[in-house]
């Protein structure tokens, strides 16, 4: 039995004028670390709220741990852990008071499930008498995770836990999730950061309420149909504008210190031909190499394809 099963879920707001989710189907296996990757407004939070029984879908069905999200909402509320997006704890309660409160809310105590949160809690325990409002972003996030875990949920929903948190805290957070996975907890986590996708076992790329792709990060990257090239020169802005007018070009966009490009025809001497073209346009320091695509490259390609289909 899968931990989460979503079938043809559609959700609209504003009397059907805004479509948040359009015919989404998806399955997450028990104990899986599943990532929902997409920008703000893609529909991630709506999906989370439907699965945590806070919203009712217009169409479709979904089960969490075998329970129906509408009929069996009481059972689901007893067995899932949830960290909403933009969630802040009670700012005027201390770390310990917050945790105690959430523990009792679920009819348990800190000591009962201390093993589960120990790894995370020891990092914030020195500050347990500090008010949550005075904690740093990273520590708040750890406390929130402790609060969501304190009742030993079978499924954990984390809606954008790393948004607005700096790179160091983000890295630590993902390491904590990996350790939780070993405890057989199913985790569904959403993020707008594409680079975090590789840290999940399977991911769904979501945009405008539609799934672009659902698979392991490796397979999504492997399904990239073309050879991707990284191009670099001394003046990146100039070279970007020049490559845009290259006749054999299919797509080009900036990607860190390089441009990522694909070509209509994967002809033999593509690198030397492009170099010649760019030199003729007075670019210096030209470097071209073949590279493996990333999740972000895949996302950009799938997003472009989806919008092309829509236009036709």
């Amino acid at each position: 039995m899968s931990a989460i099963k979503i079938e043809h879920i559609t959700k609209t707001y504003d009397k059907g004028n805004v479509t948040a989710l359009n015919d989404i189907s998806l399955e997450v296996a028990k104990g899986e670390l599943f990532g929902l990757i997409g920008p703000d407004g893609a529909g991630k939070s709506s999906l989370f709220r439907i699965l945590t029984t806070l919203l009712i879908a217009d169409k479709g069905t979904a089960t969490v741990d075998g329970f129906d999200v509408v009929k069996d909402y009481k059972q689901i509320r007893g067995c899932v852990g949830y960290m909403p997006g933009k969630f802040s704890l009670y700012q005027d309660l201390t770390v310990e008071e917050n945790l105690t409160f959430f523990a009792s809310l679920f009819g348990t105590s800190i000591s009962e499930n201390y093993d589960l949160i120990k790894d995370i809690y020891v990092q914030i325990e020195p500050f347990k008498t500090r008010r949550a409002g005075k904690l740093s972003g990273g520590m708040k996030q750890k406390l929130a995770l402790c609060c969501a875990l304190i009742h030993k949920p079978t499924v954990l929903f984390l809606d954008e836990p790393t948004t607005g948190v700096d790179a160091v805290s983000r890295k630590e957070f993902w390491e904590m999730l990996k350790r939780l996975k070993e405890q057989q907890i199913t985790i569904m986590v959403s993020t707008p950061y594409m680079d975090e996708a590789n840290l999940c076992e399977r991911i769904a790329l979501i945009q405008n309420g539609e799934l672009l792709s659902v698979d392991t990060p490796e397979k999504i990257v492997a399904s990239y149909p073309q050879q991707l090239y990284a191009v670099k020169a001394d003046n990146m802005h100039k070279i970007l504008n020049d490559v845009r007018f290259y006749e054999n070009l299919q797509s080009v966009y900036a990607f860190g210190e390089y441009l990522h490009t694909t070509f209509k025809n994967d002809e033999a001497q593509i690198e030397s031909k492009l170099t010649a073209y760019l030199q003729q346009k007075n670019n210096s320091g030209i470097e071209i190499k073949k590279i493996e695509p990333t999740i972000e490259d895949s996302f950009i390609r799938l997003m472009t394809e989806a919008s092309l289909i829509k236009q036709h």
Partner: peptide
């Protein structure tokens, strides 16, 4: 506003 209401609702309380 805080978002804690969501957690309260998604609890057996």
């Amino acid at each position: 506003e805080l978002g804690t209401m969501e957690i309260l609702l998604v609890s057996p309380f």
